[in-house]
Nucleic acid binder design. Structure first.
Length: 608
DNA sequence: TCCGAGTCAATATT
DNA sequence: AATATTGACTCGGA
């Protein structure tokens, strides 16, 4: 824990941290309203309410940390950083920019393809298993299989070689362009991010040993029937587990046992370990959503991983993304069946994996991912299927063992029917103004005092708890270092897949171009920036109007009709507007949003 | 009580 | 239809 805390702390003041925050902030605004918002923002804010809110002195200490900061804990002992592994060795093969991934991918893809056939691994490091790799030295560089997500401390040195592949991070900058100016602000740091550097914590054992689990896995591998699962490039979707597949199992006894285990775990669900059982929220079907239990020790996916092992979560996530993509396994399915987590959680984890050494209870989830990929292909798919089917079968009874927090209760709202089916949790969505204001404040003060929060809440007409949640979430998320500039795993996989699948051989100019564009330095990113920035006036106008209205509302405070106080807001204050706030905001706005377009910025300024 | 971690799960985007 | 985002809930520590 402390680590986290520390990190947080350190983060506060730092520039970097700021940037990160910025990043964080920036992201959302993106959506549609950039223009408008940008413009309106300054104006909108309740005038100075910030003033009132005295910016709290954040921990002064912060400053120091710099780059390394967050992640690092570093130094500590020597840990040789696993650094994540991988400082990517860039594979030379690809011309493409930084992203070696492509190469990787392809290689990986192939590997996978062959999986079944290969016995090469048979030895110890089983192919699939590889993640476990026992012998680090042997691993080859980019192969997913080989690449160890896990590293033993020893490896460190060599590890980079090994891992090679996958990490796209390198290219950081590239994407910056995408985001446009904004990104420029942001970028920097992270890419490398956290993940990478992890010093491995513990033990240095060296040698070691494959954890038991791993051994088991390895065994499985052997069992895998070679040709059987041939992974056709086309993958067999998890969904279609045909008989044939099942047959395969037959061939591998060991696997079978595993499967059975898994199955049993699924089915039997006797254990209701977790206290809270998620009641089916919705009345409809009591569908067993999460059915498996993460606590079942028999479940291979719950196999423990030795302390001496360090899992490279980032690479693991890439691998997972690859697998999902390749086999057309929806995140939701994988998340729920294998990880016992929601789709959103999986998506988030995949996008922002925390370094292993910083994980607390969250390791369990990664452990499951790891154990899943470590299984032979057939088994991997089988487990998915099984769970599915069996689960359904068992549905009635299985009490899921969700992760720790299941939300049972509903909200105050629906007074009406109690239990019923579901009171849907109304979800609050900040208005543009609220969001922007909060973000602007966050930039200045990540940890506003209670009073300040209260003031903010009043001005924005939000509950204190909401404001508090905002800051808490913002702090946490900004800390993650997003890989904003990186394509999403999904995207990455898609690219890879494309390349790999497509032609390996002929990378036509087009593809190449694509790659370069995608990962290369310039060129605006596909998704947002461009569109957003461009203004579409019409819409903008509308939004503007709205914004203005709201502003007015704020300024005048309660005057406007809506004022209502459903919330417990009190009439607020009358804080006079102070330039300060506005300035702040302006700056923010300008910087973030429309760096380029001078117009807006100018306008705003002028206005003020 | 307050915070951070880990998630959920409703929404938004793609 | 799938994936990404995100406000809020639940836990465990301090």
């Amino acid at each position: 824990m402390e680590s986290s805390r520390t990190a947080a702390t350190s983060t506060n003041g730092t520039e970097k941290s700021r940037r990160r925050n910025t990043d964080y902030l920036q992201i959302d605004p993106s959506s549609t309203f950039i223009n408008n918002t940008g413009r309106g923002f300054a104006e909108e804010l309740p005038e100075n309410f910030l003033d009132t809110i005295s910016p709290h002195p954040i921990t002064p200490s912060a400053s120091t940390s710099s780059a390394t900061s967050a992640t690092e804990e570093p130094a500590t002992s020597s840990a040789p950083q696993l650094a994540s592994l991988a400082p990517m060795s860039m594979s030379s093969e690809q011309p493409s920019s930084s992203f070696s991934s492509a190469s990787l991918l392809s290689s990986s893809y192939e590997t996978i393809k062959n999986e079944p056939e290969d016995y090469r691994f048979s030895g110890s490091t089983a192919g699939l298993l590889s993640p476990l790799h026992v012998d680090s030295r042997r691993r080859e560089s980019h192969d997913f299989n080989t690449s160890p997500y896990i590293k033993e401390e020893e490896d460190l040195d060599g590890s980079h070689l090994l891992m090679g592949g996958i990490r796209p991070d390198t290219p950081t900058n590239d994407r910056s362009t995408d985001l446009g100016s904004i990104s420029s602000l942001l970028n920097e740091d992270h890419h490398t991010n956290t993940i990478g550097q992890s010093p491995s914590p513990r033990s240095t054992f060296g040698s070691d040993p494959t954890p038991m689990i791993q051994r088991q896995l390895i065994k499985n591998e052997d069992g895998v029937s070679p040709g059987s699962m041939g992974f056709s490039k086309n993958h067999q979707g998890y969904q279609k587990p045909r008989n044939g597949d099942r047959m395969e199992y037959e061939k591998a006894p060991y696997q079978r046992s595993l499967l059975n285990q898994a199955l049993s775990s699924v089915i039997s669900t006797p254990t209701i370990s977790s206290s809270n059982i998620p009641t089916p929220p919705s009345a409809h079907i009591a569908q067993p959503r999460r059915i498996y239990s993460t606590q079942d020790s028999n479940d291979p996916l719950n196999a423990e991983i030795g302390d001496d092992i360090y899992i490279d979560t980032k690479d693991l996530c890439k691998r997972i993304a690859f697998e999902l993509k390749n086999h057309s396994i929806p995140q939701a399915i994988f998340a729920e069946r294998i990880l016992c987590r929601s789709q959103g959680t999986l998506s988030d984890l995949l996008r922002n994996p925390k370094p292993w050494n910083k994980l607390k209870s969250g390791r369990e989830t990664f452990r499951r991912m790891y154990n899943w990929v470590a299984q032979p292909l057939a088994t991997r798919l089988a487990i998915l299927d099984m769970k599915t089917e069996d689960v359904n079968r068992a549905s009635g009874m299985s009490p899921p063992t969700p992760a720790q927090n299941v939300r049972t209760h509903s909200f105050r709202r629906s007074t009406s029917d109690h239990d019923g089916p579901v009171s849907k949790r109304p979800r609050l969505v900040f208005t543009d103004i609220q969001k922007r204001t909060l973000q602007a404040i966050f930039k200045e003060t990540q940890r506003p005092s209670r009073e300040m929060q209260q003031t903010i809440a009043e001005h924005l007409r939000l509950d204190l708890s909401t404001v508090a949640n905002f800051f808490m979430n913002a702090r946490r998320r900004s800390r993650l270092g997003g890989n904003i500039d990186e394509p999403t795993p999904f995207q990455q996989m898609a690219e890879m897949y494309k390349e790999g699948a497509i032609a390996t051989s002929n990378h036509s100019a087009e593809q190449r171009e694509m790659i370069e564009r995608g990962f290369g330095v310039s060129i605006p990113g596909p998704s947002h920036s461009g569109e957003l920035l461009n203004g579409d006036s019409h819409e903008d106008d509308e939004e503007l109007d709205e914004l203005n209205d709201s502003e007015l509302a704020y300024e005048e405070d309660v005057e406007i009709g809506d004022e209502e106080e459903e919330d417990e807001e009190q009439a607020n204050g009358d804080i006079l507007p102070t330039p300060k706030v506005e300035e702040l905001e302006e700056k923010t706005v300008i910087k973030e949003e429309a760096p380029d377009d001078g117009e807006y910025g100018a306008t705003k300024l002028a206005a003020n």
